[in-house]
Design a protein around this nucleic acid. Structure first.
Lengths: 406, 406
DNA sequence: AAACATTAATTAAATTAATTAAAAAAGATT
DNA sequence: AATCTTTTTTAATTAATTTAATTAATGTTT
C-alpha cells in the first residue's frame, strides 16, 4: 500500500492555498470575505494566502464590488495571462498545437499533418515532435520565461506518471519515453497523458464537468476512449488502463474488434461502426444519398451531412448507433454511477441525432429512478477538447497542492 | 460541488491519529519508532498520539520486543476487546447475526430464518429486525456499555448515508428508513449498507484486500453484486448504484434478466446461470449425476458436489460459468483497472473449478500485459464476509478521521 | 449632517500541534 | 567500565491557524 498522507503544516498550507486559488478560479471573480464564507476558512487565513498568491502573480485585485451595506469588497481574479502553457494533441492523422493562458483560453493554434503516419518509428516520432514544437515555439509571442510547461495528449495507453507512451494502436510505438526526451530538449516540465483522459481533465476544468465531482467522459471517434474523474481527479487504475471502456464487451457474439475480442463497445458505437453500417446498407442496395457522394470516403462526417440533408438511411444509421452508445453508457452508469456522462470526440458533432436514442435507452433501462436521470451531455470543448486538456495537465499541477510525502 | 477539505489543526490531528491507529491495526504489533519510520511522522508526534490512544483504551502496550542493539522497543497492539460491534446480514432466506471485537473476530454468532419472506411488508420487516436484535443482544455476554454500534448489510440498493433501503429485489421494500428506526430503538449508532459493498469493506479490513488500495469485490450468489474500493474507501457513486456490475450488459441478445434487460452479467455467470445450464443439460437428456439427486433442488451446491465427485457434465457447467465470469471480470479490468479482483459469495465455494477458466480468459483477452496479470483471488472471509463487513461499517468510523468540515 | 450600524479587510495575540534538538532510558558491544 | 545504539520522552521552537480586536469604507437612520 502507498504510504499514507500525514498531517503537517505544509499539508495544511498547501491544501488551503489550493482551495483558495481554485475558489477564485471557479468563481471567476470573488472577494476575500466570500472566499472565507464558501471555504469555511477564517478571514485572516484567506487574507494571508491571497497576499501570497498576489505576490506570486497568480491572482489580481481587479475592481471594487458592490457594497452590501458596508465597506466595498475587493474583487479578486486569476491573473490569467501571467503564465502560459503549450499543449499538443497527437492524433492519428494530425497533430494539434496550442498556447493557452491560465484560464484555458487559446491565444494561438496550429495543426500539423502527421507525416506518412504508419511508417514512423520511435526515433522518427520523437524527432517529428521536437521539430514541430520548436517551430511552434518560435512563432509564440509570449515571453519564454512565462511558459511553465508542455502538456501532451496522445491516443493509446500512456503511463502518465513516468510520461511513457506504452502502446499506440496506430503509431506502432512501444514504451516511448516522451516526457524525458521532450523535457531534456526544451528544459521545461512536460506531462503526457492519454487523449481521452486529457479530454476529461479539460472538461473538468473548463467544460461541462466544472461543477461535478464524479463523471465519465467518452471520447467517441474511430474508437471509444474514456476518462474517469472521481473526487475531482483523473482516475488511472493500476496500469493506466482505467477508462478503456471502448474495449468492454457488450455483445459476446458481435463483430470482431481490433483488439481481438468480439463485441467490444467500440465495434458497435464508434465512427468505425457508423462506416460499417453504411457500407452494409449500400451493399444491400438500399436507396440513400450515401451512394451519391462521389469519391469521398464514407466516414462519420459524410453520414452526418447526409442526415442533415434529411437522408432517411443516414438518420437510421445514426439512430442505431445512438442506441448502442446508450447501452454502453448504461453499463458505465451501473458500474460507477457517475453524476454525469460527457460525450465528446468526433462523433459527438452529430449529437443532435444521437442524444435522443441515448437518453431514451437509459430512461427505459436503468435500474433505479435516479440512475435514469443521469445527466448525459455533449462536450463543451469540441474538437479542441483533448488539446485544451493537454494544457490542463500542466495547469492542474500549478493549482493543486502537493502531498507532504511523495 | 461538495465543499472542499481545508487544512486545520483538527484535520492534521485527526489525520495523524487515524494513520497511527491504522498502522498499528494493520501490522498487528509494532513499536512507536517503527510507526514513525513507516508513516514518516516524527517520534514525538507518534508518542503523543499513541499515549492518547492508550488513554482512550484503543491501544495496549503489550510486551517488549527484541532489542536491535539498543533499548528494547515497546510493542503496541490494538486493544481489541475494549469495544465490540453487532453486525447483521439480511439475506434472501436467512438473517445472520454476529458480535465482533475491534479486530473483526467473531465471539458469538446466530442464524435466523427469514419468516415467509415474500410476505413481509415494511412494518413487519422492521418489527422482525428489532425482535431478532433484541433477543440476540440479550444473549451477548459483553457489557452493553462496550457496544459501539450496529452494522447492517442487506441486499438491494441502499443509501448508506441516510441508512435507507431504497429497493430490494426479493423483499418488496421501497425506501425503508432502517437506520433511523433501529437507532431509535436501541439508542446506538447504526450503519446500513448494501451486502456486496459490506463484503468489499470486510475484505479491505480483514481479508484479501488488506494491503490493496484499489480493488473490486464481486459477490457472486444468485445474482452478482459488486463493491468498489478506491483509495482504500468504498465508492458509492451518485445514487449508491456504483458496483451494480451484475446488471452490466455483456451479451445484447442473451437471456432476459430480472431487471428486464437482456444479457446482464448475472444472467450468464451467477448461481442462477448455473441452475439454468443444469436444467438445460438435463432436458437435453445428457447423462449426468445431476439427474440422480432425488428431490433436492438443483442449485449451485448440488452442482459443485457433483463436480467434486467427478461428474463431467457438472464440471463442464462450472467451466463454462467460469469463462463468463472471466469475461465480466475482463470488463471490470478495462473499466477500472483495479490491482485486484476478489471473488466472493456462494458461488466462490466452487472456486477450484472456476479460477482456471477465469484466469485463462483474462490472460488471453486483456489489452495489456500488466492487465493480464491482474490478481484474481477468492474471498478470504467466506460465507460470513458480508456479516463481518457489516461490523466493519461501524468499526471503520472509529478508525477513520473525521473531515474538519462536514 | 452626525451618529450608528454593517460589511470588508487587517493586525496582534493566543492557540494548536507538529518539528527540532537534546536528554533519558535501557541494552548491546568492546 | 566505558562507549555506542536504539527507543522513548522532554523541552524548546516553529509554522500556521484561530480568536479577538482594530481599522477602513460605506450605508442607514434620526
Amino acid at each position: 500500500m502507498a504510504s499514507p498522507i500525514t498531517g503537517s503544516f505544509q499539508l495544511m498550507k498547501s491544501l488551503n492555498r489550493s482551495v483558495v486559488l481554485n475558489t477564485i478560479r471557479i468563481h471567476g471573480a470573488i472577494s476575500r470575505s466570500e472566499i472565507a464564507k464558501k471555504t469555511k476558512l477564517t478571514p485572516p487565513t484567506v487574507t494571508n494566502i491571497v497576499n501570497e498568491l498576489i505576490d506570486a502573480e497568480l491572482v489580481l485585485e481587479s475592481r471594487s464590488g458592490k457594497s452590501n451595506g458596508g465597506r466595498k469588497p475587493i474583487i479578486l481574479t486569476i491573473n490569467s495571462n501571467s503564465r502560459y502553457i503549450v499543449g499538443v494533441d497527437v492524433g492519428v492523422n494530425k497533430v494539434r498545437l496550442a498556447v493557452t493562458n491560465l484560464n484555458g483560453e487559446v491565444s494561438k493554434r496550429k495543426v500539423e499533418p502527421m507525416p506518412v503516419s504508419k511508417a514512423l518509428n520511435e526515433e522518427e516520432f520523437l524527432l517529428f515532435l521536437k521539430k514541430i514544437l520548436h517551430s511552434f515555439l518560435e512563432e509564440v509571442s509570449e515571453g519564454r520565461d512565462k511558459l511553465i510547461g508542455i502538456g501532451i495528449a496522445m491516443h493509446g495507453i500512456v503511463d502518465h506518471e513516468k510520461g511513457i507512451a506504452i502502446h499506440g494502436p496506430t503509431l506502432k510505438l512501444e514504451k516511448v519515453p516522451v516526457k524525458d526526451v521532450i523535457e531534456e530538449e526544451f528544459n521545461l516540465p512536460v506531462r503526457v497523458e492519454n487523449d481521452a483522459k486529457a479530454l476529461a481533465l479539460g472538461e473538468k476544468w473548463f467544460g461541462a464537468g466544472k461543477e461535478t465531482d464524479h463523471f465519465v467522459c467518452l471520447n467517441v471517434g474511430e474508437g471509444i476512449g474514456g476518462g474517469i474523474v472521481l473526487n475531482n481527479r483523473l482516475f488511472h487504475g493500476n496500469n493506466s488502463l482505467a477508462g478503456e471502456v471502448g474495449h468492454t464487451i457488450i455483445d459476446l457474439n458481435g463483430p470482431t474488434c481490433s483488439c481481438g475480442n468480439k463485441g467490444c463497445f467500440q465495434t458497435l458505437a464508434s465512427g468505425q461502426a457508423l462506416k460499417e453500417r453504411a457500407s452494409k446498407k449500400i451493399e444491400e442496395g438500399v436507396e440513400t444519398e450515401l451512394t451519391k457522394i462521389g469519391n469521398r470516403e464514407i466516414e462519420g462526417q459524410v453520414i452526418y451531412e447526409a442526415a442533415l440533408k434529411g437522408d432517411v438511411v443516414a438518420k437510421e444509421i445514426l439512430r442505431e448507433t445512438g442506441e448502442y452508445l446508450g447501452l454502453g453508457i448504461l453499463n458505465v452508469i451501473h458500474f460507477l454511477n457517475p453524476s454525469m456522462i460527457i460525450v465528446g470526440g468526433g462523433v459527438s458533432k452529430a449529437g443532435s441525432f444521437l442524444m435522443g436514442p441515448i437518453t431514451e435507452t437509459i430512461e427505459t433501462r436503468a435500474l433505479s429512478f435516479e440512475a435514469q436521470k443521469t445527466r448525459i451531455v455533449l462536450s463543451d470543448l469540441g474538437e479542441e477538447g483533448s488539446l485544451i486538456g493537454a494544457c490542463t495537465l500542466v495547469l492542474s499541477e500549478l493549482f493543486t497542492h502537493e502531498h507532504g510525502n511523495t
